[in-house]
C-alpha cells in the first residue's frame, strides 16, 4: 500500500511543477496563463489537504479525516471572505 507521505509528495510536486510550467509559458506569450499558474499554485496546498483527508479516510483514521475537513472548511472560508 502506498503511504500517505508518498501520495502527498506526488500531489505537491505535480502542483508546483504544472504551475511553474504555466507561468513560464505565460511569461513568454500570454498573461492569462500566468494567472492560471498562480491559481494552480495557490490551490495546490488546498488539494494537498483534500487528498490527505481522503487518504486518511481510506485508512480508517477518522480523527485525521475530520481534521482535514476542518482545515479545508477554514481555507474555503478564507477564499470567499
Amino acid at each position: 500500500m502506498v503511504s500517505v507521505e508518498t501520495i502527498l509528495s506526488w500531489v505537491l510536486r505535480a502542483g508546483v511543477l504544472s504551475s511553474a510550467a504555466l507561468m513560464t509559458v505565460g511569461f513568454l506569450s500570454e498573461i492569462p496563463l500566468i494567472w492560471a499558474g498562480i491559481v494552480v499554485l495557490a490551490l495546490t496546498p488546498l488539494l494537498r489537504v483534500v487528498i490527505a483527508g481522503l487518504t486518511f479516510l481510506s485508512k480508517g483514521e477518522w480523527i485525521f479525516f475530520v481534521i482535514a475537513l476542518y482545515v479545508i472548511s477554514v481555507l474555503v472560508i478564507g477564499i470567499f471572505l
Binding site: V4, E5, T6, L8, S9, W10, L12, R13, G15, V16, S19, A20, L41, A42, T44, P45, R48, V49, A52, F64, I67, A68, V71
Partner: peptide
C-alpha cells in the same frame, strides 16, 4: 506556497515531515 510545495514533496519522500503532527 512554492517553497512549501517543492520542499515538502522532497521532505515527504524522505519521511522527514511528520504529516499527522502537521495536520
Amino acid at each position: 506556497i512554492a517553497s512549501s510545495s517543492m520542499g515538502g514533496s522532497v521532505y515527504l519522500k524522505d519521511k522527514i515531515t511528520n504529516v499527522k503532527l502537521a495536520m
